[in-house]
Design a protein around this nucleic acid. Structure first.
Length: 568
RNA sequence: CGGGAUGUAGCACAGCUUGGUAGUGCGCUCGGUUCGGGACCGAGAGGUCGCAGGUUCAAAUCCUGCCAUCCCGACCA
């Protein structure tokens, strides 16, 4: 299959200083990848083999789920992105340029537009549906901040699939099939994942789920409870706290001077008040009308939740001028008392007594403020991001926040793209209607990183069998010993004949170097050939995963076929 | 994009404060001894000190600008 001496596996003894994450360090040290520029990597023979293993699993499972593979262009005319309205939304993340004719192109960061255009031009009737297409190809995003080696890069391989259905029921079925395929894929890759409700974000659409891996070098925060609730921080909800009545107000609100102190931190620091004793008042413009959101000083308003509580369809933070108009004071001094615009309070705020908040006058704040007595919210609810220790939404147990990495994401897109880009068909009644779409993505390189993050120890990588670049590594301890060399060659030939993928470390290196490199690159099984054992007709087989070793008998005189190797 | 840090041989780093023309470990090449968990001895090769400009008799070292990379944050399929 492959001889070490004839390929490129540049293992590193020193830890490259720019690497932080375990997967980054190990991928570099094991000679899987090399960096060309920030967020741009080459995959060397070992790394590329792992990518191939992942891709093979992806293909099998996509095909099994009834999807068909295509290959779409990476070069997209800017036109098509303008058509969907995402050209601007893409912002600085898109890599755009003009060709010699002056036509603008973007290097495909994702392919909803292209696939919709393609399918839209090809389907005519509801009889052509459903159809699910997928592809595996390089995407380009000029990430502002590539991170952690191969976890977030500017150029990455993605498996993306798109389903087109005639109706919502069809979409549900297509989506379900993909969800099942994803579960099979990650399970086969040996990755411990969890499915989390997520925010569809820029993609649009009405439902999405993320496949997440808990990992210190992930980029997402996920809230989870003991009873199994899991949601991305963006949309995680919390249970309504026991409506403990606020402590009886001790005194009436009182104005005090806070010259140039605008932020919660400044006031908290200057007057030695806990942020949790303060009411943060943020002015929003909801469907064109001002409204104030109230949360405890140590919390952050979640705009999605606020929008739902208000019942608005669009919401944004107010500009300085609008704040001045709505509260009569400059930014930094807003408070709920005496405010003429409706105020929406988080549950936390209802339980606060004697709180500190803005006085709606420049350089002044109020103390001894209590909800109910000093102001009445238009509505109260969960309008902030959850925090560690919050009550779980089902009221059972507390929420924990964990760092996680997203390895897959599935969306029900609906008609967002089929309407804007154009993918119509004639339904059974002869009416022209847009196809109902779903889209489904897996980051291939990221999966490689996730597997290393989960499967490694101090010595190196411990590949799951399904992703390992090779099944078995032959370690010939003394390459200058004829018996060792001969046996190695025989076993190498034998294993290949058995259809095993084998790496033969035939380098003229010392035993220690080979052992350490073998543990580093993490091939699941090692066959160790040493003179002492060979003289007695024995070889040693070691599992990288468990460290377990077994001594097997080999009858060398009878040729390579006289022994066999079982899995542990 | 804001904040912080770093840039000297393939990798990891010292030298910079106090300017005098570059060093250590690993790796690499050759010879020898070794050979079951990163050997030893001897001899070598390898560097535009990130780039540009400035100060100076003299710059890796001091000054200015730029670039690159990493980390934190913002942003984000």
């Amino acid at each position: 299959m492959m001889r070490w001496s004839q390929t490129l596996i540049p293992t590193l003894r020193n830890i490259p200083k720019d690497a932080e994450a375990a997967s980054h360090k190990l991928a570099l040290r094991a000679g899987l990848i090399r960096q060309l520029a920030s967020g741009v990597y080459s995959y060397l023979p070992l790394g590329f083999r792992v990518l191939h293993k992942i891709i093979h699993i992806l293909r099998e499972e996509m095909n099994r789920a009834g999807a068909s593979e295509v290959l779409l262009p990476a070069l997209h005319p800017a036109e098509i992105w303008r058509k969907s309205g995402r050209f601007e939304a893409l912002g600085a993340d898109k890599i755009v340029f003009k060709n010699r004719a002056g036509n603008e192109f973007v290097l495909g960061p994702t392919h909803e537009e292209v696939i919709t255009e393609l399918v839209g031009g090809s389907i005519k009737s509801f009889r052509d549906l459903p159809v699910t297409l997928y592809q595996i190809q390089t995407k380009f995003r000029d990430e502002a901040r590539p991170r952690f080696g191969v976890i977030r890069t500017k150029e990455f391989i993605m498996k993306d699939a798109y389903s087109f259905d005639a109706d919502e029921g069809g979409l549900d079925r297509s989506y379900q099939k993909m969800a099942e395929a994803y579960t099979r894929i990650f399970t086969r890759c040996g990755i411990s994942f969890q499915i989390v409700k997520a925010d569809p974000g820029l993609m649009g659409g009405n439902m999405s789920q993320e496949f997440m891996v808990e990992c210190p070098y992930g980029e997402d925060r996920v809230a989870k409870s003991e009873s199994g609730y899991m949601a991305s921080l963006d949309i995680a909800e919390r249970g309504k706290p026991d409506s403990k009545p606020p402590a009886p107000p001790s005194a009436k609100p009182e104005i005090f001077d806070t010259p140039h102190l605008r932020t919660i931190e400044e006031i908290a620091h200057r007057f030695k008040i806990k942020p949790s004793q303060m009411i943060k008042t943020i002015v929003y413009i909801a469907d064109g009308k001002p409204a104030a959101a109230l949360v405890m000083g140590d919390s952050e308003v979640n705009e999605g939740k606020l929008r739902r509580l208000i019942g608005a369809s669009e919401i944004r933070q107010a500009a300085a001028k609008e704040i001045q108009e709505a509260t009569g004071a400059p930014v930094g001094f807003a408070g709920p008392v005496g405010l003429s615009i409706p105020v929406y309070a988080d549950w936390d705020v209802l339980a606060l007594a004697d709180a500190v908040t803005g006085a709606n006058q420049q350089d002044k704040h109020l103390k001894n403020v209590s909800a109910g007595r000093d102001f009445k919210p238009a509505a109260a609810g969960d309008i902030r991001y959850v925090k560690e220790g919050d009550l779980a939404p089902d009221g059972k147990g507390k929420l924990k926040l964990v760092t996680a990495m997203e390895i897959g994401h599935i969306f029900k897109l609906g008609t967002r793209y089929s309407k804007s880009v154009g993918a119509d068909f004639l339904d059974a009644k002869g009416e022209r209607v847009p196809a109902i779409m779903g889209c489904y993505g897996i980051g291939v390189n990221r999966l490689l990183a996730a597997a290393i993050e989960e499967h490694h120890d101090e010595k190196g990588i411990k590949w799951p069998a399904s992703l390992a670049p090779f099944d078995i590594e032959i370690i010939a301890l003394n390459q200058s010993d004829p018996l060792t060399r001969e046996t190695a060659e025989k076993i190498y030939a034998y294993l290949q004949a058995q259809g095993r993928e084998v790496l033969y470390d035939d380098r003229d290196e010392r035993a220690g170097v080979k052992f350490n490199d073998a543990d580093l690159i993490g091939i699941p099984q090692q066959i160790i050939l040493g003179e002492r054992n060979l003289k007695e007709g024995k070889i040693e087989v070691k599992s990288r995963r468990t460290g377990e070793t077994r001594i097997l008998n080999v009858d060398l005189s009878a040729g390579p076929a006289s022994f066999s190797l079982q899995d542990f």
